[in-house]
Simulated assay, not measured.
Amino acid sequence: MGGTFFRNLNRNKAMLLMVLPGALWFLCFSYLPLVGTIAAFKQYRFSRQGFLYSLVHSKNVGWDNFKFLFSTDAAWTITRNTLFYNIAFIFLGLVCSVAMAILLSELVNKKMAKLYQTGMFLPYFLSWVIVGYFAFSFLSLDRGLLNHILGSFGGKSLQWYSDPTYWPYILVLVYLWKSVGYSSVVYLASIMGIDRSLYEAAMIDGASKWQQIRSITLPLLKPIIIIMTLLAVGKIFYADFGLFYEVPRDSGTLYSVTNVIDTYVYRGLKTTGEIGMSTAAGLYQSVVGFALVMISNFVVRKMDKDSALF
């Protein structure tokens, strides 16, 4: 048996060498850090002997870090904001990304299609710090573009960074502006892989563009839509820290609609320095995300086995 193993190893050494960098990356950044999850159950105190020594010799506190995380008045607010924002991001992001991919695929002038795609793809590479300053240039009380537009029509300037009323819509719009171009690439690639003879046959039968999209494009996109949605569901308890911290400029008056688990943990860590509490929050997010992926995949597998992620 050992000889067979080494023969297979030697036969596939070229492929294994190609996989090695990715395997090392996962080992270093995904598996080795799992040791640190022990800090979620400890009152971590750093010592000069190093991280592992401190981790082993820190006081065990059991579930106290989790209790501390969810015993505050903000626990419901941050959980609600994280969950509902991500639901909006998943649903609206899916609709906008698929719609954008279909529109790009229908453009006759492919050079213009590439130009539009590049223009929509560019915001994804901007950091949230830059996006935050873009938003500030629109929403600033004194020099903001939106307040100038309101003033030109006789309206009053709004204190955007002091009024939480509009921020759920602002955050969703900013997220879609930054991410839709990137997300649409996956769906556009899938559309490009659809057999064009199907559309030609539909046109011969007199099908309109909408009928072709409804009867050919969307059904054939269903597997990739389900996979992307399942992956997004796994991160439903994770929030994009930059979006919720940089864009609202960490305004305290907006915490009721901009405070999520990630920003709450960051502020708590900055204030108290409790590494155990931040590790507990990360472990909580990972466990819930894993459970949601498994449950969602189970439901999909029961409905359509071929569309399941695994």
Rank of each mutant, 00 (worst) to 15 (best):
G154W: 12
V56N: 04
N297Y: 02
L150W: 04
R214H: 11
L292W: 03
L122I: 15
S137C: 11
A113V: 07
D240V: 14
Y264A: 09
L122H: 03
Q43C: 00
H148M: 14
K178N: 08
G119D: 07
T272P: 01
N86W: 07
D73K: 13
A135D: 05
L103E: 04
N109A: 12
L24Y: 01
S256H: 00
A23D: 04
I191S: 07
T4K: 15
L94G: 13
I275H: 07
L230W: 06
A99N: 03
K42G: 02
F51W: 14
W160Y: 15
K209D: 04
L27I: 14
I194Y: 09
F84T: 09
A207R: 08
V260P: 08
W25V: 15
G276H: 02
S58K: 05
Y53T: 10
S162T: 00
Y266T: 13
L83V: 14
F66S: 01
L230N: 08
D306Y: 09
R80P: 01
K114L: 13
T229W: 00
N86T: 06
T217L: 08
L176V: 05
R48I: 05
P33I: 06
F66A: 01
I130Q: 03
M277S: 01
W63Y: 11
T165C: 03
D240L: 12
S58Q: 07
P164G: 07
R267M: 09
A202V: 02
L145Y: 12
M228V: 03
A207F: 08
P219C: 05
F134P: 01
N297L: 03
G132F: 10
T165G: 11
I225M: 15
G119E: 07
Y161G: 03
D142H: 11
T77C: 03
F237A: 03
F41C: 02
L27W: 10
A113W: 01
L24T: 12
F136P: 00
L94A: 05
Q212E: 14
F5Y: 15
E274R: 14
Y175D: 15
F134A: 11
P21I: 07
L104N: 05
D142P: 00
F91S: 10
F66Y: 11
K270D: 12
G62E: 05
T72E: 06
